[in-house]
Each structure stands twice: as structure tokens, then as C-alpha cells.
Design a protein around this nucleic acid. Structure first.
Lengths: 239, 239
DNA sequence: TTCCCTTTTGTGGTCAGACCACTATCTCTG
DNA sequence: CAGAGATAGTGGTCTGACCACAAAAGGGAA
């Protein structure tokens, strides 16, 4: 994307990346479809397998490809799976990081919900409703629901119409996920109730209500974290 | 950061990444300091050079390291340099992408400015003032000022106190930079004026004023883009 | 001496080909 | 028909060689 920033001569890896992107475009490969295996692709692009591999790795680390060991390499228009693309790895103060991540959600997700209320069509709303029900089911049956919960939020982000939202949100969620375990106890009722409020506001195309509902939902989450931080891998907070 | 998401056995590359992070921590390496060369480091970590290289590449693509050909590999706590970590590469509709990026800035930067007004100390304000003056100088002398302009904005993001902001903003800016050339004509005056307004609001610790000033500044930018999109590599808009 | 050009040195970049480890599938057996 | 085992295909890792670039050292001309 940015060979234009510098004037440096493109390396073999960079060229290969561009050619892979072109290949996907030319072949009309869609989300989930498989690329040729590494040996074939390296011949096709006239680079060594190691160079080709490096190109694939870089593309996968920016969510463009998904590499599955022993299976193959797949196109992934899916949003946000890559590890730590924002470089939180080296941030020592993990407690502050967790706090800032939660604050950041409060900053953008209510706005995303408002936009979603404005832009969501029937199909979107049906998908949101399904996800909302699905989260409820998981909570009621005592199963892990965090992942599905995040899908609900990401779906709202996608409905916002701003393409940055669904790209960014899963990264934020993923980073928070390291710190926070599954919702427990009384908060589960709260989660189901506020999720439902968000869904209803979006269904009614009421932007203000959606904003407020999402805001409340996230505030609950933040305060829970503050007062009762259930942590996974607590060592990462002090390190 | 997220070996905790899945239960999969860590690959050699993943272990190497972790060990590199640990190495940086143990040796107390700071921003800009150099790591041992690839051959030494691969011996040190007991992995092959190719595995080590892959680990280094991944860390560099998440802004943790900076690899300079013919020179060495350096620790980079710096914010946002990596190419396209959010995976905009495959987005075909570049016009929409540009629009959404600008809208996204309008969504988060005013809030960052408000937080900066609240949290900035004397040192921060001095740095902001210097950057603001510097941008003015560049504009007046007719030199490219886009990069310094972005530094000004990133500095505000850093002053916000939320660590996500300065990580994210350069990525957004960098992606927008592909589309938008240097500010030209009458907008230059506008840029200098609104920058100054933002600075003054932050200096006065007036959050509301900072929010409004930043909002106006960005609206000007967006409208300029809409009415008169000066584009670099226009082909990328239609592709 | 001072400057510029050449050489040297050290670094990351690329290549080739071999073998390892995992996954899904097929096949044989009970 | 179900399960265990063999098999083929994929990405993962290793080795060691050579290439290309950037900075520093050296040497000659003004």
C-alpha cells in the first residue's frame, strides 16, 4: 500500500507482496478461498520459497491472509485477527494499557452504534438480532460467550458504514481479551439487558438511543474491571 | 502478546519472538538501540537464521523493531511506522477508504485534543508550540510540511494520556497520506490559524475549546478533500 | 592539510534444496 | 459400519551459500 512513502527500490519481498495482491485480484479470489501452495506460488512469482513465505507472513500479519499449518493459505477479508498490529507488546504498564483500551472503546463504540442505527438495513439487523440471541443463549447455558459477544460488537461496527471501525475494533477487543475473563455473576444479566437495548435502538434507527445504550454498556464493563478486575495471566499487569 | 488466545503449541518463530522481547527487556535496550546482528542473535536464541528473520520481520511489522538494510536492527518504541497494519491493502474502493479515514479522524482527534488540554504539562505544551511554529515556518517558506503537521497531531495524541491514541493516529495519517498531497493555496492560512487555535486551547487547559478547534480544523480538511481532492496516484482511487 | 573517490567491512536480503511436523483424507481391518 | 492406521499434501524449519546495500576506512590528488 505504501511504496509511495519512501523512494527506496522495492525489495523482492515487497514486489512479491504486491504480486500476491494482484494475483488475488486477477483470479477474483474471495474471502476464504485458497491460494496455491507455497512451492507453486513461488514458481509462479519467480521468487524463492523463503522470499515468498516472508511476503505471505507479512500479508497475514496485516489480516489479508490466513495461514493454516498443514492445510493451506487462504484469503481473509475478515476483520482483525492478526496479533498485536498496534505494537502493544512492548508496553510495560499493562494495567494502564487495559484501562486505556477500555476508555478507547467508550470513545468510539457509542459513535459506531449511532452510525449503525442510521445505516443498518434489514439484513444487518437480522444478523445483529441473531448474534444478540446467540450471546444470551451462551450466557444462560453457562458457556463461554466472550467471542460471540465481540462478534456482536464487530457487527455493529460493520453496520456503521465506516470501514475503519470493523478493522480496528477486533484489535482492541483482542488486546482487552488478554486481561479480562468471561463475564461472571450479576453482570451477565446486565450484559443481556444492555445488549438488547442497543439492538432495539438500532432496529428503531434511533441514533441517540443507540449511542446512549452502547455508552452505558461499556461503562458497566469498565467499572466492573476497575472494581473487580478478573485477570488472566495476572503477571502481565505488573511486568 | 497473545499466545493465550489459542492453546496451540507455540511455533519456533513465536518462541523466538517472545525471546527477542525478553532479550530487549533483560538487556534494558531502549528506543533506537541496536540488537545483535542476525547471525549472532540466531545462535543466541538457538534457532536458524531464517526462523530468527521471520520473528524479526513480524516484530517489525508491529512497530516493535526497525530493520535497516545494510545497517542493523533497532528497537523502536516509536509509534506507527509499519505498513498498513490494519489491512487496508485489499480494500478496492479507495475513495470510500479515504473518506472513512477522514471521518474517523474527526471522530477521535477532537476527543484526543480535549484530553490533551486536560492532561498536558509544561513540557508537552512547549513541544506542541515548537511543532506548531515549525509547521508555520515550513508553510511560509514553501517547503513540504505534511510530515511535521502529522507530528503535531501525534504529539497531541500523546498528550491525551491515552496510549492507544499515539499508536493509532500515525497509521490513520499514513493511510490518508497516500491520497492527499501537501496543503495548497488558501488552506495554508487556514491550517496555521486553526493549529494555533488548538495550541492555545490546550495551553489554556480548555478541553471544550480544544475539542471545537480540532473539530473545525479537521472539517476544513475534509471539505477541502471533498471539493478539491488533490490526489497522488489517482489510479488507486478507481482500482 | 583537505577533499573526494575507492576499497573494505559488516549488515540485512535472497537463494536453493533438504527434511520435519501437522492435517485431512483415504484405506484397511475388526 | 466404526475405528485405527497409513498416506499424501501442506506449511514449518534448517543449512549454508551468495547478493546488495550502507557506512567506515584508506589512499591519492589538489
Amino acid at each position: 500500500m505504501y511504496p509511495y512513502h519512501g523512494n527506496h527500490k522495492p525489495s523482492a519481498v515487497e514486489s512479491a507482496m504486491k504480486e500476491i495482491i494482484d494475483y488475488i485480484g486477477n483470479e477474483g479470489l474471495c474471502d476464504g478461498e485458497r491460494l496455491p501452495n507455497e512451492r507453486e506460488l513461488s514458481e509462479l512469482l519467480h521468487v524463492s520459497r523463503s522470499t515468498l513465505r516472508e511476503a505471505l507472513q507479512r500479508l497475514s500479519s496485516r489480516n489479508v491472509l490466513e495461514i493454516r499449518r498443514g492445510v493451506g493459505t487462504f484469503v481473509s477479508y475478515k476483520h482483525g485477527v492478526a496479533d498485536d498490529p498496534l505494537g502493544f507488546t512492548l508496553i510495560r504498564d499493562k494495567k494502564r494499557l487495559a484501562r486505556d483500551l477500555l476508555e478507547f472503546r467508550i470513545l468510539i463504540e457509542p459513535r459506531a452504534a449511532a452510525l449503525a442505527a442510521q445505516n443498518a438495513n434489514e439484513t444487518d439487523i437480522a444478523e445483529l438480532a441473531y448474534l444478540c440471541d446467540s450471546v444470551d443463549d451462551l450466557i444462560r447455558s453457562g458457556n463461554p460467550h466472550l467471542e460471540r459477544d465481540q462478534e456482536f460488537h464487530t457487527c455493529i461496527a460493520r453496520c456503521s458504514g465506516n470501514i475503519i471501525m470493523p478493522k480496528l475494533l477486533p484489535i482492541i477487543h483482542g488486546s482487552i481479551g488478554v486481561f479480562i475473563a468471561e463475564t461472571g455473576g450479576q453482570l451477565r444479566e446486565e450484559t443481556m439487558r444492555t445488549h438488547r437495548a442497543i439492538l432495539n435502538a438500532i432496529r428503531a434507527h434511533d441514533g441517540t438511543a443507540a449511542y446512549d445504550a452502547m455508552y452505558l454498556h461499556l461503562i458497566y464493563n469498565r467499572d466492573r474491571f476497575r472494581s473487580d478486575p478478573i485477570l488472566l495471566g495476572g503477571e502481565y499487569l505488573t511486568k
